[in-house]
Nucleic acid binder design. Structure first.
Lengths: 226, 226
DNA sequence: CCGATTTTTTAGCTTTGTCTAATTTGAAAT
DNA sequence: ATTTCAAATTAGACAAAGCTAAAAAATCGG
């Protein structure tokens, strides 16, 4: 009888790196610098962790070439993203959290909840497919809806759009959108995209008009409405 | 303008020690050995941590004399206990967890949830005063209901009792009680307390009779019913 | 193609929290 | 008053994760 091998969970640091690489890398690989900036650690720490993540089989890493997720790494990232988005949904819909506080709390919780907890929370929430920011929630099996939304900053005057999601990292922006009910699911019409300063002028379903500066327009993602 | 001092939260290890000392120590102090046994670490690690906890102002410690909580330590312990019991309540009442799985999950979550989360969860649950095991939930201010319950093993034949709580550490026992609906709030009558083997025979509200061996009788706490 | 700049890595150190092995202390029993 | 034994402490090591400073590699502009 060999020892029962208890699958030791990854530390929250490891999880943070994997998620950052997933976020940045997409298909390709993430650079030391970008990961360092995202996690607010020194580049040296990132190099150090890249080596260890490779030993764990979570990334493929070559000196000076950045790191890209292996299949196992990708699954781990999606597991965390799934937890994160389910937790955010719970905090917003059931605990009455403000948009701005949700991300931070979920960021800590996602590292300690079990798969069992995640499964039950998913059920409690009624198997949502998107979180309140509009981001798709990966399935337990690690599949993720394809997403052909684009930032509002790339829209063209005259287009009719559906808000698909809003970036969830800047609290002030989330607040701005939330206060004006510019949330996923709402429809917009593009009145003007001003090349000179990047301001996008849109009209909502109640004929309310908003002029969104470039930073805001980059934070809102939209789909073409038929 | 001095740096804004961000109150750094205690690590989960520190929290575990403080809670263990609270659990064991009661009023007095907890020994190195007992804390080591409870946390499944070596006695050397405990000595080491006792010194550090003292430097943090959480315990009073003297060589060979064990550690006792300071006022700050006691508050920290109660903060964790409050979180733990609220989380257990949520897991059982809303996520459909089994009695046996609840403790472990809460043990991990209690270290990462914020005060904000705790406040909102308390509200979501309707400000419960006891968790589903019957243990009182400390207030946000750190006050804890006095408790004059005693283990069923100390009952006397003929007494009419109210189940007050059941120890939440042994999953099999929790299961046994749960399956038979021997849960906090139910009433029992003591038919017999057998000195020879410590078996306690009780009858419940439906006239169902149970013979509980000493280990079970020590795990169930009761109050005298008027 | 070459120097300047940016990015990455290396080297070495720090803190937390753990361990084992060896030693010391306190307490209990003769 | 010793002896003995359990409990506690010390000493020294290790892994995880971070840091700074210095060196090396890659990239970019002319």
């Amino acid at each position: 009888m060999t020892d029962p091998i208890v699958e030791k969970p990854y530390s929250s640091s490891v999880g943070d790196y994997v998620k950052a690489i997933w976020d940045l890398g997409g298909v390709g690989s993430a650079s030391t610098k970008d990961v360092a900036a995202k996690l607010l650690v020194s580049p040296a720490s990132v190099t150090n962790m890249f080596v260890r993540l490779q030993e764990m089989g979570l990334v493929k890493y070559e000196r000076y070439q950045g790191a890209s997720l292996t299949e196992r790494g990708r699954m781990e990232a999606l597991r965390l993203v799934r937890r994160h988005r389910l937790i955010e949904t719970f905090l917003l819909e059931h605990l009455g959290y403000d948009w701005q506080d949700v991300h931070q709390e979920a960021e800590r919780l996602e590292h300690v909840v079990s798969d069992e907890f995640t499964r039950r929370l998913d059920e409690f929430l009624g198997h949502p497919e998107h979180d309140p920011h509009g981001d798709p929630i990966p399935s337990a099996e690690g599949t993720l809806e394809v997403d052909d939304s684009f930032p509002l900053s790339q829209a063209v005057a005259g287009q009719r759009l559906l808000i698909s999601k809003v970036r969830d990292e800047d609290a002030a922006m989330l607040d701005y959108f939330g206060d004006r009910n510019l949330v996923p699911g709402r429809r917009l019409t593009v009145k003007e995209v001003r090349a000179i300063d990047g301001v996008v002028i849109v009209e909502d379903e109640e004929a309310e008009v908003y002029a969104l500066g470039d930073p805001l327009a980059r934070s809102m993602f939209v789909l073409l409405a038929s």
